[in-house]
Nucleic acid binder design. Structure first.
Lengths: 338, 338
DNA sequence: GCGTTAAATGTTAACGTACACGCATAGAGA
DNA sequence: TCTCTATGCGTGTACGTTAACATTTAACGC
């Protein structure tokens, strides 16, 4: 069904059909109904090609995520996925504009957000990892925004779609895997670099939940606030002193390679199994070298691809996007590295 | 750069530019060179939207795979991925035409292939699981075919792209996982339903390779030709009689659930770890119920998506597609089921 | 009955590409 | 000098949508 075909059937010109479809201009009630009926029974899906060709416009998409180079390059993986998707959809000319902020600095997030709002993009992809601040910023905008979330959800907001992984299940799975790999029942340590991050806390919670099902497993919580990561060696030393028979470590964030290298340098690796998160390059390297035993991944590139495709669906096709995507929990050993 | 822009710069009409770009009609050598030079320095990428709009044609893609309902629905997962991708690219109207054949019947494959050749599709997606026959059929075609392989490669042919998983590594990984899960060192059994399938034999080979690295692991090969799957219970009984302390079973194909249910019904499950292949619904069910401990998957939907996207790249964008895609080996436990 | 006005509807030119058609011009042959 | 043909090139239309612009129609007051 094309506009011309509808026009022919209704006995009017395409101009009138256009007015009905786009609800602009004046059309007599009976003509409107006649056209509406045809559309309702026959169905009309505008030709995305012709529309895009005529509109002749770029779709500028703002991406608000932490610095690409930080967190071992995790955000770069996500960003690459978005770029890749924009190439796949190159015909529709999506232009990706990056707005980085320094985690966990409020002022930085606010500045990047404001800058992004001033950019006049038609839609936004946001990593709402600083929950309160992001919520406040979104609520502060009076205009109706088109935005999506990536990496984490943010309850109480109205995104077009959310693409993320269940962090609790991730931690739970890590518990199971660590138990399998270490062939023991503890003691284990959970290493948490960011204390405020929802995802990371949930992973730790899931990990504990797994071992809560087992009997008498000793778990040690090693927390280091984000500004003082240099204290980590001391904390690990303390942990090792307290539990010389430590059997495993779960690092909830992508910086597992730092811990793994430290453990290896101390000569503790042969007794300690290590499980980390995300296939960032340094983690992959450690996995290859046997310094890390297992990694859990959340398909960051696929997250990026999916979120942009949903925006395409909403903006170009004007279809309702799927409100939520749960990314699978991928398990990687040396043997199944890509 | 548009055709019109090139024309303006060259001081000719778009018709002449068109003749140069498409190498049709007659153009004077110096005019041709003038236009060529502009194209070479400025670069010209035809607008995919306008081209498609003008061409106004469907791209009919023939898909040659085994029956969707057989092999526990594995091929349906692949097919769904292809369909999904064709929806994502709906603007370019790919029409998928399915040609099923009965594995491993030669006559059936030949008939389906011939029928597909007669369909006049512009490109083909082929699962070359019956190697010799598929190769012979492809070589028998005199016309230049545009085809891709999915699920397996086929050496000595010229596909646009091949999307598959390394089956040897899959089996190797299965070995590692079975050892981890069973917390023992055998005896283990490998169950192989199809004796002729390359992928399945490779998986078994990889599995053996893993245990070749360990000491004194007893491996039992349980092979059942495809026409006599009903003999499987007897074979399993024999295996269990020979090795009453059997610790694990690796089923190289998607029918693991059949073995798993049998083992469960015999009351042997508590001593035997089971690892299978592919997230077909019955396997997923068994995994949930604990009748299967672990599944390896090859992202069939993603394979379908990827192969169609490469065809889009080739046919619509006229870019060179990536000749090969290795799908990751995904590991699934009950805890990370989607 | 005629002019005026607003409401209702029609027309047309893009967007960039593809391709059929046809018009100039030059050189050859009568 | 006058056709005739081959060569080189320009023009026009279509694909389906959008949106500005133009035209028709009906209603009303004088």
């Amino acid at each position: 069904m094309t506009v011309a075909e509808i026009a022919k059937r209704a006995g009017v010109s395409i101009g009138t059909v256009d007015r009905v479809l786009h609800n602009r201009g004046r059309v007599s009630p009976k003509t409107r109904k006649r056209i509406q009926d045809i559309v309702n029974t026959e169905g009309y899906h505008p030709n995305a090609l012709a529309r895009q060709l005529k509109r002749n416009r770029d779709y500028r998409i703002g991406v608000l995520i932490p610095e690409l180079k930080k967190e071992s390059g995790y955000w770069e993986l996500i960003y690459n996925g978005i770029l890749r998707a924009s190439e796949e959809l190159s015909a529709f000319s999506f232009k990706i504009e990056l707005f980085e902020f320094i985690r966990p600095e409020r002022a930085s997030l606010t500045a990047a957000f404001k800058k992004m709002m001033g950019s006049g993009c038609c839609a936004y992809i946001i990593a709402p990892i600083m929950e309160e601040e992001t919520r406040a910023l979104l609520e502060g905008e009076k205009s109706q925004l088109t935005y999506t979330f990536i990496d984490s959800p943010l309850p109480g907001t109205r995104p077009i779609t959310t693409v993320a992984q269940d962090p609790f299940r991730g931690g739970y799975l890590a518990g199971k895997m660590l138990e399998l790999i270490s062939r023991s029942n503890g003691p284990y340590a959970v290493v948490r670099p960011y204390t405020e991050a929802f995802n990371l806390n949930e992973r730790a919670r899931g990990f504990n939940a797994w071992f809560a099902l087992q009997k008498d497993v000793v778990l040690l919580d090693v927390v280091c606030p984000e500004r003082h990561l240099n204290e980590m060696p001391a904390l690990l030393h303390a942990a090792h002193q307290k539990y010389p028979d430590l059997k495993g470590i779960f690092i909830v964030a992508s910086m597992g390679h730092q811990i793994a290298n430290f453990i290896y340098e101390q000569g503790w690796k042969k007794d300690i199994s290590i499980i980390g998160y995300d296939l960032v390059t340094e983690n992959v390297q450690c996995l290859k070298e046997g310094k890390i035993d297992c990694l859990i991944s959340q398909r960051p590139e696929e997250q990026g691809r999916q979120v942009l495709y949903q925006l395409y669906k909403k903006i170009v096709l004007e279809e309702e996007p799927n409100p939520q995507f749960n990314m699978p929990l991928d398990i990687f050993f040396k043997e199944n590295l890509i």
